[in-house]
Simulated scan of single mutants.
Amino acid sequence: MEKIVLKAQNLSKRFGNQLVFKDFSFELEGPGLYAITGRNGSGKSTLLKILCGLLAPTAGEVKPLIDGVQITERFTSLISIATPYQELPEELSLKELVDFYAAFRALQLPNTDDLYINFQLPITGQKPIKSFSSGMKQRVRLGLAIYTQVPFLFLDEPTSNLDATGVQWYKSLVLEQLPKKLIVVSSNHLPDEYPNARGIFEIQ
């Protein structure tokens, strides 16, 4: 099994004159799940974006490694991410969206005969994504990210807009992935979002 490591070294982020966080360092070793927790506005989502390469730090460095080899230019091809603010192509149906996504990313769906079982959604046929509720859209975001075959998985407040059944579905998916991936979750101190976490890092 691959040894998956993500190192954060003295990370700082500033937006104009506002310092979000300073000198944040840790080393995450996977497979396994780690949580970044903090109150609203503490900078946890910003830190998650920096860790997965969507945002540059003001200072410091992020080093992803697989079996001791640092990953540089192709890191974005080795990650998947789900956030509640992530836009979906809402004119597509669920099948059209999954087919489009699978043309670019390798998906491992447990039930290839029934997409609605995979995402635990009511049967929508050719209805476009724009007709889905906020909770249904969040299930689609999470399912696509979690089922993507990559070693690094980043989840920002993953249970946003989910009902109790959706939270249990999310937890079961994440627990299945624990032996396979390095998973980083940002959360407002909601333990259901980071089951069996190997480490929890608090942003004050």
Rank of each mutant, 00 (worst) to 15 (best):
M1Q: 09
L6A: 08
A8G: 09
L11S: 03
S12L: 09
Q18R: 15
V20R: 01
F21G: 03
K22R: 15
E27Q: 13
E27T: 15
E29K: 14
L33P: 00
I36V: 15
T37A: 07
T37R: 05
T37E: 11
T37P: 01
S42W: 02
G43N: 04
K49T: 02
I50H: 03
I50D: 01
A56D: 15
A56I: 15
E61K: 13
I66V: 12
V69Y: 00
Q70R: 04
F75A: 00
T76D: 12
L78V: 13
I79N: 11
E87V: 00
L88P: 09
P89V: 10
E91Y: 08
E96H: 12
F100C: 02
A106K: 14
L107V: 12
N118G: 09
P122F: 11
I123A: 02
P128Y: 15
S131V: 06
F132T: 05
S133Y: 00
Q138K: 04
Q138M: 13
R141D: 01
L144Q: 03
Q149I: 12
V150E: 11
L153Y: 14
D156T: 06
E157L: 06
P158E: 04
S160N: 12
S160Q: 12
N161Y: 13
D163S: 10
A164V: 06
W169S: 05
Y170R: 01
K171S: 09
K171H: 05
S172Y: 07
V174Y: 08
L175R: 04
E176G: 00
P179N: 13
I183Y: 10
V184N: 07
V185Y: 14
S186M: 07
S186N: 10
H189E: 03
L190P: 00
P191F: 03
D192P: 02
N196R: 13
G199R: 10
G199W: 11
G199I: 10
G199H: 13
E202L: 14
Q204V: 06
